[in-house]
Computed example of a mutant assay.
Amino acid sequence: MHDAVIGGGRSPLQPRALVARSWSRVLEAGLDPDGRHPRDPLPMDQVLARRRESPVALVIEELRAIISSVADASQFLMVVTDADGIILWREGAARVRGRADSLGFEEGAEWTEEVVGTNAIGTALAEASPVQLFSAEHFEAEQHPWYCTAAPIHDPRTGELLGIVDVSGPAMTLHPAIVALVETAVRLAESQLWRHHELRLERLRAVAAPVLASVTGPLLLVDDHGWVAHTAGIAAQARIAVPRDRRPLTVPGLGLCLPEPLGDGWLVRPAGGETRIVMTLDLTGPPAVAVSGERPWRAPLTARHAEILLLLHRAGRSGLSAAALSSRLYGDAEHVVAVRAEVSRLRRTLGGVVESQPYRISPAVEMAVLGAPAG
């Protein structure tokens, strides 16, 4: 079936819908099923850097406890990647690790569909769902002696994809319980990630307790990612825009605020007599924004972020929906996901100057534009 379908011939059998979609994507990418596509693994120092940056590092021991404890006896490997499909951790039976090395299935290698064809890791990334592949369901002929079972792991707070947990081994050793094993490991890891989040907020509250006891008026205590640990005099909310030192931001219920560093977080409260942010979008050279006042600051912008700010400035208080902003940026309304991602990155840079639903410049911001193009 693999040879016939990929070769454009006829087959009495057809691949599963998931496999057919993946083969189609891989063929469009120009990969050769009989070729060996370059793996080019990252140097170990880059792998270690990615491990340190990955939230999955917080729960790798839990994954080892569930999966790796039976890997040697069951002749399989546990593999964990980041959201880019880069293998960061690989553990399991020594004999199987040796066979995996010959396949380029090693730490630092990228196992996306675009690089190595249909495989459980890359296809789970593409489909955003758990995947199990057996033998010739893999695109590359070299991978046919293998099975692989993979499931995405997400940040339980935001739903953001963090990586893939995969179990792989010789095809004829596949056990029916492997799917349940991987899904159970992912569920436990995500619950532990949530617990780590709660513990961080508890530690922040404990460190900030003396200061909070002496401060009056409405305020929020948030961590470095904007998650709220404590609130006083304002309706509870889960998260605000990410605070930045010397960067004013607007918070629903508090108005204009100047975040103050406190422990591993921020104390956020109204900015005294200040009622507006005076901001300039400077397009006379490399794009940048500048804020004047008692705590002035200036930040560079990407061309795309400058374009978004200019469009929102011209839209005024009515603002723009994600679809309308997509039409102005890309010429159609089909790039809503990309628009939301760009605005999210822009808000991390500017600290909540842009409001959502619809997207618009905050009423607390008085913005001028230098060097704006006509139109």
Score class of each variant (00 low, 15 high):
42 L>P: 01
209 A>K: 14
343 V>C: 09
85 G>K: 08
215 V>D: 05
312 L>P: 10
370 L>S: 06
65 A>L: 03
322 A>M: 03
33 P>V: 07
358 P>C: 11
251 V>Q: 02
329 L>S: 06
156 P>Q: 04
80 V>I: 14
151 A>P: 01
78 M>C: 10
155 D>Y: 05
107 E>F: 03
193 L>E: 08
363 P>V: 01
157 R>Y: 00
139 F>C: 02
102 S>F: 12
258 L>Y: 04
87 I>E: 12
77 L>R: 06
337 V>Y: 13
246 R>T: 11
39 R>I: 03
46 Q>H: 04
56 V>P: 01
300 P>Q: 03
30 G>C: 02
262 L>W: 04
339 V>S: 07
82 D>M: 07
150 A>T: 11
237 Q>W: 02
197 H>C: 05
268 V>I: 12
373 P>T: 06
238 A>W: 00
231 T>K: 00
219 L>C: 11
119 N>T: 07
182 V>T: 02
90 R>N: 09
55 P>V: 10
253 G>M: 04
9 G>T: 10
33 P>R: 06
140 E>G: 11
170 P>W: 01
46 Q>I: 00
329 L>I: 09
326 S>N: 09
4 A>L: 12
120 A>Y: 08
14 Q>A: 14
100 A>T: 11
260 E>L: 10
44 M>F: 09
316 G>T: 09
180 A>F: 01
162 L>S: 00
53 E>R: 15
250 T>R: 12
207 V>S: 12
117 G>T: 07
217 G>R: 07
94 A>F: 07
276 R>V: 13
5 V>Q: 07
347 R>Y: 04
308 I>C: 05
24 S>N: 13
363 P>K: 00
133 L>P: 06
307 E>W: 03
236 A>Y: 06
78 M>Q: 13
319 G>K: 07
359 Y>H: 12
120 A>N: 08
225 H>F: 09
82 D>P: 05
68 S>Y: 04
353 V>S: 04
145 P>L: 06
38 P>K: 09
147 Y>R: 02
339 V>L: 04
101 D>R: 15
235 A>I: 02
303 A>V: 14
